[in-house]
Simulated assay, not measured.
Amino acid sequence: MARLCYGDMIKDGKFVINEKETQNIRGIFRNYLEGNSLIKSAELMGIKKNNSSVKRILTNKKYMGNENYPKIIDKESFDMAGQMIKDRAVAMGRVWKKREKEIEVPTEFLYEKGEVLPIDPFERARYQYSRIKVIDDE
Rank of each mutant, 00 (worst) to 15 (best):
residue 46 G to S: 06
residue 16 V to F: 04
residue 108 E to V: 10
residue 19 E to C: 00
residue 72 I to E: 10
residue 91 A to Q: 10
residue 30 R to G: 00
residue 122 F to A: 08
residue 1 M to C: 06
residue 31 N to E: 12
residue 58 L to Y: 03
residue 59 T to V: 08
residue 128 Q to C: 10
residue 31 N to K: 03
residue 134 V to E: 15
residue 20 K to D: 15
residue 103 I to E: 13
residue 99 R to H: 03
residue 111 Y to Q: 06
residue 20 K to M: 11
residue 131 R to L: 08
residue 86 K to P: 00
residue 89 A to R: 12
residue 98 K to I: 13
residue 4 L to M: 05
residue 88 R to K: 13
residue 30 R to E: 14
residue 114 G to L: 03
residue 84 M to F: 07
residue 85 I to G: 10
residue 33 L to Y: 05
residue 10 I to E: 13
residue 95 V to E: 13
residue 42 A to E: 07
residue 26 R to N: 04
residue 34 E to D: 14
residue 22 T to R: 15
residue 46 G to T: 01
residue 85 I to D: 13
residue 110 L to W: 04
residue 69 Y to K: 03
residue 84 M to R: 12
residue 135 I to R: 14
residue 59 T to Q: 14
residue 130 S to W: 00
residue 15 F to R: 15
residue 130 S to T: 00
residue 79 D to A: 04
residue 15 F to M: 10
residue 76 E to M: 09
residue 78 F to S: 05
residue 51 N to L: 03
residue 107 T to M: 11
residue 88 R to A: 02
residue 134 V to D: 05
residue 50 N to Y: 00
residue 18 N to F: 00
residue 17 I to V: 15
residue 28 I to E: 13
residue 127 Y to K: 11
residue 101 K to A: 13
residue 112 E to M: 11
residue 66 N to M: 04
residue 114 G to D: 03
residue 4 L to P: 00
residue 11 K to R: 15
residue 98 K to C: 06
residue 7 G to D: 06
residue 15 F to S: 04
residue 32 Y to A: 03
residue 16 V to S: 05
residue 121 P to Q: 01
residue 32 Y to L: 10
residue 52 S to M: 13
residue 12 D to A: 11
residue 111 Y to W: 12
residue 137 D to K: 14
residue 62 K to T: 11
residue 129 Y to Q: 09
residue 107 T to Q: 14
residue 134 V to W: 11
residue 117 L to F: 00
residue 5 C to E: 13
residue 31 N to S: 08
residue 12 D to R: 14
residue 101 K to Y: 03
residue 25 I to G: 06
residue 27 G to T: 00
residue 80 M to Y: 09
residue 110 L to M: 07
residue 69 Y to Q: 04
residue 99 R to N: 15
residue 90 V to K: 15
residue 64 M to R: 15
residue 60 N to I: 02
residue 74 D to C: 07
residue 72 I to W: 06
residue 50 N to G: 06
residue 95 V to M: 14
residue 48 K to R: 12
residue 126 R to S: 09
residue 118 P to W: 07
residue 134 V to I: 15
